[in-house]
Design a protein around this nucleic acid. Structure first.
Lengths: 203, 203, 203, 203
DNA sequence: TATGAATGAGGGTTCATTCAT
DNA sequence: GATGAATGAACCCTCATTCAT
């Protein structure tokens, strides 16, 4: 029973968001990701997200201020995911390291994240502030230390390439990406073949 | 009788509008492009498009069945633009030809088309049937004959690269693209530098 | 698939208060009936119905899928009303029974229901599926057992007569039907006078 | 404005004045009747009527002030039709005369007119001024002279019966009325059987 | 007179958000 | 917190009507 009747007290508001239950938050974000992935952000209703999360609409607003906050939450999640996957060991031989650099963004976007990628990019393309943040996220990371490799002249360019390939994939909507790692490897190989025509084994 | 106008003479020009259907159509598409480019497809109302076009709302529907048809119209326009720009003379020296191949998609998307690119990709990412058509449009064109160049092993990959760069640019929302041709050239150069490290140009 | 389970804390259901759904529904139907009765179905807006019901527009759609469902709801209401009023005791003397049979449909349509009758018939005349259902409702009910009366040869015909009179009344728009029972009685008497000219029975 | 036309002139055929007004008018009314009959008045657009008539929308407005005038035109047409069919010879024996009286309205409404009947009644039920005029048209005609028959006490009632049967038929949407005359005869017979069980000739 | 593109008020419907329970 | 009925602004679209040709 929830007979609050707190209107009587006129209690001063002190804790706007006391618990912020991170579990619930994550569940809602997952639901949002799934829902948005199917129909896009604008064609998905809050009700759908709520049902997908097994909650009522109103509950969503206890965890996210509005629909847009849901999108931003996803954005941030994608960012963390991407950034996390970019922490790569760079003590490998140059070729391996470079391959890792190239494969990273693709792998980050693969699998479940492809859907996320679609949704976020779809909106980022149309909302400057999102777009800029996203571009920075994807392209302008500090290039990881590449062993003894001479600094590749166009690392961002290469990353753009990989992202372009990812875009290609995303646009094709070949939904169940069969094997993201294999795909990343294959593409990396292909690009490397262009860049370093001679496969000089370093080890 | 019919819509034929057999009164060629008479008023040379005043306001006799046998309303050029395609003209109106193009004007509406331009208005749609501008409107969508600013706020995205979903956040733009038909009223805004109408106003931008200097027409009443209902008039839009005399030329396009619904809002979606507007988007498809833009899609097709982008397609034609891209395809047109890909018809390039390939009797140039290999390096030039390759550069042309690479620069083409970027240039196609540059300038005014960047806005178009954003809108179309934004929706294509979220609507499979659009996405597939768009991917085919961008990536799966018959590679133009490259003079005596050995068939580049990964032309689509290169095109993906250029598209990735375009996406980069699109996401950054660096709105007034300063000089699309220069940009295309620069990027092409950069990639070529990676691919063909020695500019063995005959002096 | 879904790993959200931990609902160990059996929290009791909140608010054991059924929100009086059928009440609202009835209120909306009444509002619809009144609104439609004044201007007809097509010339009445959902906004008017909402106002008449003291609700917001959107609320209507929480109870009825669309405007048409409102009409169908009225249709069903009329059906139930009519059918209910036809359950009559037939142990009366033949003359009384016959009179009851004849009066029933008229009385069913009288009073408030005249407005309903107008609205429903108006649409039923123009929408085959509604019309057929309505005709069945009005004319093809199982004729009630008439005591020892020889089965009247043309009961449906008689019912049609009464309905015709009702139509007459409905068309005249003599809106505040003064006394539906009296009217039903009078008409029944008139018809009976035609059928059984000598009411010399005293039983 | 142009309620009455001017036919004072000798109307030389193929004159430089080509009004052909009544012809066009009739054609439009026919088109309206057909269109309205299929989908009802409100669900039919002026464009549909125009196309059905082989004209442009604007042309309709040269002959009818607005959509409503089309309906009124049909109303009037139905009236004339009904009235015309009621002019019956009354020198027949009473039974025949009565039968004719009864059959008349039904026959008037049969065949093509059933569609008209539906449309007009559908609107008349919902628009008082139309309804009253229509009720007067159908029910309150001067009863034709019935030979030497004693004035039937409830002639309007009988006519209401026939109209009720017609309504029945109209509601059932049994579209291709098989044989209106046969139907009229059958129903008339049935009613007569109720009224005058013995075919006694009154002297 | 005939045409049909243009008009724009208004219609039905949606849905993010609120709030009493 | 959780709920979901209520809200109403806004949307896309229709269509009767006008008017320049």
């Amino acid at each position: 029973m929830s007979a609050h009747s707190d209107k009587e007290k006129g209690k001063p508001r002190a804790a706007p968001r006391p618990p912020a239950d991170p579990e619930r938050r994550a569940a809602i974000l997952t639901a949002a990701q799934n829902s948005f992935a199917q129909k896009g952000f604008h064609r998905t209703t809050m009700r759908e997200v709520a049902r997908q999360a097994g909650l009522a609409e109103g509950t969503l607003y206890n965890h996210f201020e509005n629909k847009d906050a849901l999108l931003l939450g996803l954005f941030q999640a994608l960012g963390e995911q991407t950034r996390a996957d970019l922490t790569l060991p760079t003590d490998a031989p140059p070729r391996q390291a470079l391959k890792a650099v190239l494969a990273a963004p693709l792998r980050a976007l693969a699998q479940d994240n492809f859907a996320l990628f679609r949704v976020v990019v779809s909106e980022a393309l149309v909302r400057p502030e999102l777009g800029q943040r996203f571009a920075a996220l994807l392209f302008e990371q500090a290039p990881p230390e590449l062993g003894g490799t001479p600094p590749l002249p166009a690392l961002p360019t290469l990353q753009a390439l990989m992202t372009g390939l990812a875009l290609h994939q995303a646009l094709r909507h070949a939904d169940p990406t069969p094997d993201p790692d294999a795909l990343a490897d294959a593409w990396s190989e292909q690009v490397l073949a262009l860049l370093l025509p001679e496969p000089q084994e370093a080890s």
